[in-house]
Design a protein around this nucleic acid. Structure first.
Lengths: 348, 348
DNA sequence: TTGTATGCGTTATCAT
DNA sequence: ATGATAACGCATACAA
């Protein structure tokens, strides 16, 4: 390994000052075009590679943004990250990824590290068990642009890109109620998260507005995983006949899939015995034996919008704080006894 | 935003030198335990956050590793990255992600940027259309530890973590031949990639060793996507009756899924009219209407092993270059007319 | 145990 | 158009 080529060496080689080399390399206007040429040639010949670490220190800017997310599920977050990456790379930003595994202490750790690495901004989707927001406040106080996506903390003065969880939940509930279901249960997400609360509120309000009688036993926390859905559903299935719901609205698709598994193992059928709905439109939703009625989210767009918003915050401290809400769509499949029988791709 | 706290300010505050502060902060032995205490307290009180950019410049080490990958498919790469992340974060390394979209020029760009950011090492899975390896050589010449995963370049003196594509292909072919199939086609990946070549060789050698007659028309390049598989399969389906294969070995699951779609649209049935095999065990493989016989790869383990190997290369320039080959397993489902009817999860 | 001088590679600022 | 100097924040090497 040869010792790394620096600006200094190019300067010596050409008998000019480091500043001239720096200017030429950065394509500044105040350099003689011939000297610029010579610098560029020499740099190429010597195999010069700019040192962004030094540059970052001098400029107090790293061209990195941190992305903090709780889960690498089968489809949602990778797709969001793809959107983020698209926007970031177009603007010559790099992504530093931090996975929190739904764990608050890992999230705190990740944010500290990102701050120390002096990222120019951070995109974050909250971990499931976050129970206070001090670690976000620290960043905001330190002037680090912070933008939430999907799972947002409110009241901190940070922008947020998300869907309308409340309205989407209403959408699901109206669909179920429209099909005549009255006894509807809800496997809900952690109420620590706004997202969990909103979907829960949508459920409750829909029940109320439909004048449907409601029981506490129909509300079970499931988390966001298949396992959580499976276990929560077993609680529901343990109810005795008149208490048994006819339909279950699940907080997301993995939970719905876990719930369907529990139902199946109990010897019951979806949708004949119990109808099920999801949320997210996981890749698997249309493929499982009884395709899942669910809410489709503009995943890729969430990533792109969040990244764009963050970049604007980075570019200007005066960028307006915004709560960006993207549209969702109800996808009716067969898990509620809908009539629709096939999707576009016949094999799937 | 308050101005950032530095070591210098702590030093002034306590009337000691910067070095004393630095030593205390880094938990060196040669500091009086009381002064260390005072430093730590003051640092906490002032809200000191170490500046890793400056630290990196001084130490010539960034504690970052670059991860370059071609695709964010539904399951494979996210899962590998999860494994990488696990090992990296345990060792206090951060991940800088670069997505190449199967594109060589983006790959070259990504590697240059990572080198300029002075990552301590790079993990890479080659883009599909890479036709020369000069950009890897540059990195290696510059002494940047480089470890390939899944899609490796050979003969460069870089370590590689992968599966045995040749043997796995043989496994698939033996299965097909064992079921009595003789006219077997292969939708193959790009031959620029070792992975594509190996699976192709496995196919050819199996045909040869089984004394099966072989036709050029049974070899169609499909790339790695559903769309590629769909189009390639249509080429096969255009063949006239005696030339039509009875089975098709696909280079991966997305291609197999695309191929099944083409078959279905042609009014034919899998496996009755044509048997299909995949490779990778995509999340969808067990869920589609005719579950797919495929090769299961130890995805998460690939990520972990690759990360560990890279970390060792970073720790010691003398770390042995290794070709690490992980085991695979044939998963028999129904796409070849196997007898097995169900999987563990009944609902799926 | 603590301090001083110097360097890491780059750019801003102020000269010339 | 070009150059000299200082600064970014931290750590190494050596001295006291």
């Amino acid at each position: 390994m040869n010792k790394r080529v620096t600006i200094k060496q190019i300067a010596i080689e050409l008998n000019v000052s480091m500043m001239t080399v720096s200017r030429a390399l950065n394509d500044r206007s105040n350099v003689d075009s011939r000297t610029k040429q010579r610098v560029l040639e020499t740099a190429a010949r010597l195999g010069y590679k700019p040192n962004y670490v030094a540059k970052s220190l001098a400029l107090n800017k790293t061209f990195s943004i941190g992305v903090v997310f709780p889960e690498i599920s089968h489809s949602f977050f990778p797709e969001v990250i793809k959107g983020i990456e698209r926007v970031a790379s177009k603007n010559e930003y790099q992504l530093i990824l931090s996975y929190t595994a739904e764990n608050q202490s890992r999230e705190i750790q990740a944010l500290q590290t990102l701050e120390s690495k002096r990222v120019d901004g951070i995109l974050i989707s909250m971990a499931q068990d976050v129970d206070n927001t001090d670690h976000y406040k620290v960043l905001i106080d330190d002037g680090i642009p912070l933008t939430f996506f999907d799972r947002c903390a409110t009241g901190l003065g940070a922008s947020c890109v998300r869907i309308d969880d409340y309205q989407s939940a209403l959408l699901v509930m109206k669909h179920l109620m429209g099909l005549g279901y009255e006894k509807i249960a809800h496997l809900h997400g952690p109420v620590e998260l706004e997202l969990g609360r909103q979907r829960l509120e949508g459920y409750k309000d829909a029940m109320k507005s439909g004048n449907l009688s409601f029981r506490e036993e129909w509300l079970v926390e499931s988390g966001f995983s298949e396992k959580g859905g499976y276990e929560a559903m077993n609680n529901i299935l343990a109810l005795r006949k008149p208490d048994m719901p006819e339909a279950v609205m699940c907080v997301n698709d993995p939970v719905a899939i876990g719930a369907m598994e529990a139902i199946s193992l109990a010897g019951l059928k979806v949708p004949d015995d119990i109808a099920i709905t999801g949320f997210t439109d996981d890749v698997r939703a249309k493929l499982i034996r009884v395709p899942l009625t669910t809410i489709e989210q503009p995943t890729y767009a969430i990533g792109k919008k969040a990244a764009r918003k963050l970049l604007r915050h980075i570019a200007s401290k005066d960028e307006e704080v915004e709560d960006i809400v993207l549209d969702t769509r109800l996808i009716v499949r067969e898990s509620c006894g809908a009539r629709k029988k096939s999707e576009k791709l016949s094999v799937l």
